[in-house]
Design a protein around this nucleic acid. Structure first.
Lengths: 217, 217
DNA sequence: AATTACCTGTTGCATTTGCAACAAAAATAA
DNA sequence: TTATTTTTGTTGCAAATGCAACAGGTAATT
């Protein structure tokens, strides 16, 4: 499985060069802070240095969904976000976060050195965001709660290269990300345990069906 | 609402230049033909000149889902497609299609003229695919059949700039794209009619709730 | 240390959704 | 044309899911 990152295909020297060329601004956010609101004025792109954050959608009826989540190395911004005239989207700090903000007018323009590295970076950002979106579609398009859970767990297994892994989300938030009722999800997790397909201790899970292992990748 | 297209931001002259530079190969497919299978050998990117095609997923249990669909101007290819070791993905011609294939090694490499247009094209392709994926997530993350339908119809209204529009999918295929049971979907469409929120004749629909119109965009 | 807020886990019950099956209509092929 | 396949539309029933409410545990805050 290919791991996509913003600086994929760039050496650490080039990465440093881009960083100094684009001179990002670092900010710290506390739990529950709103990091970005996607107003027209906001010409920044956020790179998560540490902590976790959510992309939240509030729809016309006030329902809250977790559309995406960001861990260290993930990136967000208006350019990469869904647009809507109806729903509100914002980035929420789930825990204390350190974020580097890049001005993306600088990112989009050619720099003095006429280097194509900006473009490589831009492509990486788009590809990274696309792959996460495709993963989410893969999960959401599963027909049952059970299949949504198993598909999500399978991605976690591949990401962690281990049958045992700790969820990056609380169970409560996971149900939001999977777009299912929390109590129904808890019920199905119990069923999966009873069917001996998983075991779990808190939010540390082990996938027991070994038909397809991360080693197959 | 911004309309994304592969050649967005390029003049018709530049578009022609790219086409001649990349010299795409045109092919015609009949209804039901498999256009692309995402094998490693396939280094092509397909642009739909006419007709419609689907991105199909067949999961481990044999279930078929429509993950994406392509109309004139849309683009597909291994680079833009989900990857999976478990599920099979392929592009299926829904009706007679004319497709232009671009070699994307050529696309990714700099051309002799050192033009950045290839890169613009690449960014457009990624952005186009991302926006479609985000739309799909927006729809699939709706909790009820009713909300999935209304959200989908709303996108169609915006795309067509009219409260009345013809679906680009058959109702049968729409249920696959929305990941819901067809009969349940038919039942909910009937309910929507009875609640006077929509009217429909065949697969020509009119959205009657005018809280938010395309004019607001 | 005490208080508060949040998260986990559970249950009964109502509602929604999926499943299976069928008939009619429409589109496609022979 | 006629035959065949696909799509639409419907229904009864079973199963899955959502809703509301609550209790206990854990983490965060004062």
């Amino acid at each position: 499985m290919i791991k996509y990152s913003p600086f994929e295909g760039l050496t650490s020297g080039e990465t440093a060069e881009i960083r100094s060329c684009l001179c990002p601004i670092e900010k710290i956010y506390g739990k529950g802070d709103i990091i970005m609101q996607f107003s027209d004025k906001d010409r920044n792109l956020g790179l998560v240095d540490s902590g976790t954050a959510y992309l939240i959608r509030i729809d016309i009826d006030g329902n809250r969904s977790i559309i995406d989540y960001y861990e260290s190395g993930d990136v967000f911004g208006k350019m990469l976000a869904p647009e809507s005239e109806i729903d509100a989207y914002y980035i929420l700090a789930k825990e204390k976060c350190r974020i580097s903000f890049f001005n993306y007018d600088k990112l989009l323009s050619k720099c003095k050195n006429n280097c194509i590295k900006h473009t490589v970076l831009l492509n990486n950002l788009l590809m990274l965001t696309l792959k996460k979106a495709q993963m989410h579609i893969d999960i959401l398009s599963q027909r049952t709660t059970r299949q949504k859970l198993i598909t999500y767990f399978d991605y976690q297994r591949n990401k962690n290269l281990s049958d045992t892994f700790t969820l990056p989300l609380s169970l409560s938030d996971l149900s939001d990300y999977l777009s299912i009722d929390r109590s129904a999800m808890m019920r199905e997790i119990r069923n999966l345990k009873e069917d001996n397909l998983i075991s779990a201790d808190g939010n540390r899970f082990t996938l027991k069906n070994s038909r397809y292992t991360y080693a197959d990748c």
